[in-house]
Design a protein around this nucleic acid. Sequence first.
DNA 1: TATGAATGAGGATTCATTCAT
DNA 2: AATGAATGAATCCTCATTCAT
Lengths: 196, 196, 196, 196
Amino acid sequence: MPKIGMEAIRRNQLIDATIASIHEDGLAETTVARISRRAGLSTGIVHHYFRGKEDLVAATLRRLLTDIRNSVSTRLALATTPMARIDAIIDGNFADEQFTAQAVSAWLTFWAQVPHVPALARLQRVNSERSLSNIRHALKQMLPAERAETVSLGLSALIDGLWLRCAMSADLDGETARRIARAYVLESLGRTAAEG
Amino acid sequence: MPKIGMEAIRRNQLIDATIASIHEDGLAETTVARISRRAGLSTGIVHHYFRGKEDLVAATLRRLLTDIRNSVSTRLALATTPMARIDAIIDGNFADEQFTAQAVSAWLTFWAQVPHVPALARLQRVNSERSLSNIRHALKQMLPAERAETVSLGLSALIDGLWLRCAMSADLDGETARRIARAYVLESLGRTAAEG
Amino acid sequence: MPKIGMEAIRRNQLIDATIASIHEDGLAETTVARISRRAGLSTGIVHHYFRGKEDLVAATLRRLLTDIRNSVSTRLALATTPMARIDAIIDGNFADEQFTAQAVSAWLTFWAQVPHVPALARLQRVNSERSLSNIRHALKQMLPAERAETVSLGLSALIDGLWLRCAMSADLDGETARRIARAYVLESLGRTAAEG
Amino acid sequence: MPKIGMEAIRRNQLIDATIASIHEDGLAETTVARISRRAGLSTGIVHHYFRGKEDLVAATLRRLLTDIRNSVSTRLALATTPMARIDAIIDGNFADEQFTAQAVSAWLTFWAQVPHVPALARLQRVNSERSLSNIRHALKQMLPAERAETVSLGLSALIDGLWLRCAMSADLDGETARRIARAYVLESLGRTAAEG
DNA sequence: TATGAATGAGGATTCATTCAT
DNA sequence: AATGAATGAATCCTCATTCAT
């Protein structure tokens, strides 16, 4: 008698274990055996709920993408001014529940895979474009088109760079990251951070 | 009679092949067999000139670090004003001979390894701190201490983020990257990019 | 549902195959692939049930030691006089089920490893001391202490030497070996073998 | 201009290095590279003076056999009575210059190879038979044929067993070994060791 | 649904041997 | 005569995947 929702439960358990393993052991050491042991399950289970390891890894990236997207879009829905939309994006990216050591590690790992795994590349590209488009849309209401384009690219890169830095040195908290990103936009708008 | 300089030649060949393989195949597919085939040599040779694969990979990172450091320090030596020093750092990071698809891929790959390989972590940390210190030093002559600190972190993160973006989408050339980074500093100094 | 007792079965299969391979091919040719093929299993299985080849080899020595020890101690338990104890030791060492070509080959091989493999050295030392102590204990009841000591060393060496000889020429059967060893003790006691 | 006798010098250097390496590292770790480094020569040299590694190893065994044979035959030449011949054999086997840790290790190693390397097996068989024949010849002058046969086998085995013991525990010196072996023969002749 | 025993392809590494110098 | 750079076959080991239970 299959329990209702067992599939969702197991898939989530395995995805959680994958993120934890990537964070603690690195992708190279993240074997199917280790993932399942960490999830308190047997090795065989992975192939019950996923087509294989690659599939589990892709599902893990999808989860990370979804989480961050939700974090941003929830905030965007409440924003009424262009600058509020920028803040929503920045806050969504560095919210405490997203900007965790585990998530940051996993992201970095996926970034390194992206150029070599078409399935991941597609997911990443779509997400990246949506994010850039959100930023660009807001900035165009505050800056001339060309400047808006440049600052959009800059803010996107800065956000990624702040994640990267966090992954490698862990001396950067969400609050500081938010402050740096916000200052970047404000200066680009010709105001000082203090005016913000 | 052993040929003089053979060791340096072979080590460089193998490091070049490693960078190329990481770029094209990804680290996971970068096997000793593939590296040596790409270098036009046999598999055994890797263990003749390096302690093993790990050693070769570490040597490859050292090479990348050295190249970037040289690119920056050559330019820094010619800079006479604080802003010229900032430009030297930015230009050094995005100079055409450094900012290649191959180098960018390799960097991204190493970044993902850093948290899990102590030997790499040490190299990365030292390098990262030197770079941040260079930036901070120049900015402190143009901005109040606290602002200088924030903008230093921001510029470091932005530079890394621009590399990252380049690794994943390749739609970003060195010229654009330089422009974005430079604008960030200029705006932070309270001037428009046009004034720069 | 894992089969109960599978582990013991597989470990024994692999140990048997290791002994057979050492006997027929020699240790140098005894590869993991050959062992598993001989056991009718795959190469991977060795690392499922043993930590690695070295572990399997150590387990094989332990098995040889245990077999010989059981062979001797079963007989010792039934012996009531000192000379009967000596006979039990000699018979236990040259019993047909122990003194096989396979076992003898394997022993010789391990002896050669002992000086260079600490794990084996420890096992060997413990066993050797127990055996010598058994012999000494019995002889001390029949000979003055100093003589008992010398004859103990002599009998131990003679037993090993007979095994060695058997390993290299195979022209020595258990019956002859027993007779030679027994004669040595009897003469040392001042009786002729015929009196024994 | 090839130096006179260079070949003999080099061959001996390499054989010495092989014995030393077998003693200290074991046969498994005795590589061509290690042997030549120990001899202060290059890897290539082995194939100048020997057909290959196997040939060097066989030459090493021949050297050990020759040494022991000379040690025994020199003493035999001086012996005038049957018992003196037995003493010559025992003393020749346990003379301080033969009964060294290095030689003992090497012997043990070769014994383990003998059953699997035809070239070594032949050398060993010839030597073993000569030694047994020497012993038998002397004993037949002191004992009835059948007894002489048994004691010959016993003494041969005892000598080998004493070497073996020495290889594994090193707590046995030449003097003790000689005493034990001599006592064995004397008891077998019906005299006490004290009478010997 | 879940297990973990079993497989075997593929990886890093070692090493005897060859050969240009 | 001597070197040691270079080769590539062979070894141990790992791990995704399959499958009987």
